[in-house]
């Protein structure tokens, strides 16, 4: 709640203008397009990128990879989160897997993925190793943190198991998930793009970032960053609209 009360659109706009101003000043001072491109050359690159015939395919492919990866992570997180909440055996099986994902450097796993997997799969896998643990723990928290007093009520009133799952556990999982959904989606997108930069699939934002870097076209890199920021913003608006539409938080 505090986050919402602290939010001020005017101050946020001022901050954005200051950043733009700093960009203009720094690019003037550095005066080197390869190290720090100007606002003008970045906008020019941006227009050129948008005009390329493959632009839509590139954006669509990256978004599709990100979406598929996210849905797989979500499905597996819900499945394993539920299983580990009801089975002590499964809970303990998941501990070393999560510890592995948490402590082994992400780059080491990505390198292995590059050796083992198809270059279309690697970006999704990179997103998965980053967001699966977050979603898994959120699902588990949703189940284990159900208010014990509500469970006592259910036991007393002999609420059927199916009603208990449908009306208590599932809403609790989704309420918890809805709180991390937007940040998990945006982290996943960033990781998928990083994976694309390494695995170089044909149509991909990450592959294009890598190409711009190879040609030392820093303005092109900046332009792609702007595109990624816009996509991220768009995704968060879509998520907000989806949450408003489903009214998942109407009771709050």
């Amino acid at each position: 709640m505090r986050d919402f009360t602290l939010k001020d659109k005017r101050l946020s706009t001022i901050s954005k203008l200051i950043l733009l101003g700093l960009w203009v000043i720094l690019s003037e001072i550095i005066d080197n397009e390869v190290i720090f491109p100007t606002l003008g050359s970045t906008l020019k690159s941006l227009i050129e990128i948008v005009k390329t015939p493959d632009f839509i395919s590139i954006i669509a492919s990256s978004l599709l990879r990100s979406l598929i990866g996210f849905l797989i992570s979500l499905f597996l997180a819900v499945l394993t989160g539920i299983l580990s909440s009801i089975s002590k055996f499964f809970y303990n099986v998941m501990i070393p897997i999560l510890n592995f994902l948490g402590s082994v450097p992400t780059m080491a796993i990505i390198i292995l993925a590059l050796i083992w997997l198809n270059n279309e799969i690697v970006p999704m896998f990179v997103g998965f190793i980053m967001i699966f643990p977050i979603l898994y723990e959120t699902v588990q928290k949703g189940i284990l943190n159900v208010d014990k007093k509500i469970l006592e009520i259910c036991k007393l009133y002999k609420v059927r198991r199916i009603t208990l799952i449908k009306d208590i556990y599932i809403p609790s999982i989704f309420i918890n998930l809805s709180m991390v959904f937007t940040s998990a989606l945006s982290t996943n997108l960033k990781m998928v793009i990083a994976g694309e930069a390494l695995s170089q699939p044909k149509f991909a934002i990450g592959s294009n970032l890598q190409i711009e870097k190879m040609y030392l076209n820093t303005a092109g890199v900046f332009a792609w960053i702007i595109i990624i920021l816009l996509i991220s913003k768009l995704l968060s608006y879509i998520m907000k609209a989806a949450i408003d539409f489903t009214k998942v938080d109407k009771w709050m």
Binding site: K149, I150, E152, I153, L156, Y157, K158, V159, R160, T163, D167, I168, P171, I175, W251, M252
Partner: peptide, 28 residues
């Protein structure tokens, strides 16, 4: 026996409206 219990605190389910909080214990 079937028992109903009024606790000192309300123990309503926050994401269910009044109707659903009541119907929840009656389903089946």
């Amino acid at each position: 026996e079937s028992i109903s219990f009024v606790f000192q605190e309300d123990r309503l389910i926050p994401w269910k409206n009044v109707r659903d909080n009541l119907s929840f214990v009656l389903e089946g």
